[in-house]
Nucleic acid binder design. Structure first.
Length: 265
DNA sequence: AGATTCGGCGT
DNA sequence: ACGCCGAATCT
């Protein structure tokens, strides 16, 4: 059997690459590529390799199949992103069939995308918690006070009414700060939002505050509230569907009108 | 049990 | 068409 393990110059010394041809089945003739660490551990995919090497090796332009660095390979979906942006820049509507499914209600808070890479001769903390665990000011939510959302005509949008069960913790119990705090919490962490569960936090928030939770008293959500929310979402989706339908019909009508006016040159 | 191998899902 | 990984099969 061809068990040839070759050196892989793109990887640190000691790493070996192996290619195994499939010899039967539907995929006969195709091949699988494996890598072996200096200690002999086998790796069968780029994600697996990447997880193991962490920040010590930048695999961004590493081609797993060939085992070589391919400088042109950086950001595979760059082309598509440019494509979508071009359409958008031209004033076109996003093509709902082809655009990437990005939340249009994306957070105004920057997601952590910092890439930590080590370079020879300098030290980089390889602390994975870093991105999500940066130091935060106590009561930082207060800086959101007075911020309002507005539509394109700068008309301030009616603020949301919060259920009575939601009450803020701490000195200023102001409803729109509370809303901002909760919205921020939902955007900044995937952990469940429970509010401040410790009773002590109410007496002396400066000491007992759970900083990973918004300035909000502990609350519970009833089945009834969940059903109400489901209904709202359902109705919102229906009107969105109708709006999109109307939009595409109008567009089609406009196109056929241009056609009959003989604009084709 | 560990290694090898191909299927098949998701993109 | 292909990367990735589950799981059947082999040793």
């Amino acid at each position: 059997m061809e068990k040839r393990r070759s050196d892989c110059p793109a990887l640190p010394p000691g790493w070996k690459k192996e290619e195994v041809i499939r010899k039967s089945g539907l995929s006969a003739g195709k091949s699988d590529v494996y890598y072996y660490s200096p200690t002999g551990k086998k790796f069968r995919s780029k994600p697996q390799l990447s997880r193991y090497l962490g920040n010590s090796v930048d695999l961004a332009c590493f081609d797993f199949r060939t085992g070589k660095m391919m400088p042109g390979k950086l950001q595979k979906n760059k082309q598509r992103l440019r494509h979508d942006q071009l359409i958008l820049a031209k004033g076109g509507k996003p093509d709902l069939n082809t655009t990437l499914p990005i939340r249009q209600t994306a957070s105004i808070f920057k997601q952590p995308v910092t890439k930590v890479t080590s370079h020879p001769g300098n030290k980089v903390k390889t602390d994975l918690q870093r991105a999500t665990e940066q130091p935060r000011q106590l009561f930082w939510e207060r800086r959101l006070k007075g911020l309002r959302s507005s539509d394109v005509s700068e008309e301030v949008l009616r603020t949301m009414e919060l259920p009575k069960g939601l009450q803020s913790v701490g000195l200023n119990s102001n409803d729109d700060t509370l809303l901002s705090a909760i919205a921020s919490a939902l955007h900044m962490s995937s952990a469940p939002i429970t509010g401040q569960t410790s009773v002590a936090a109410e007496k002396n928030p400066a000491i007992w505050l759970n900083t990973s939770q918004p300035l909000c008293k502990a609350f519970s959500v009833t089945d009834e509230q969940i059903r109400e929310q489901e209904l709202k979402v359902h109705q919102a989706r229906r009107s969105l569907e109708e709006a999109l339908m109307a939009h595409s019909l109008a567009r089609a009508a406009e196109n056929s009108k241009e056609m009959s006016e003989g604009k084709a040159a």
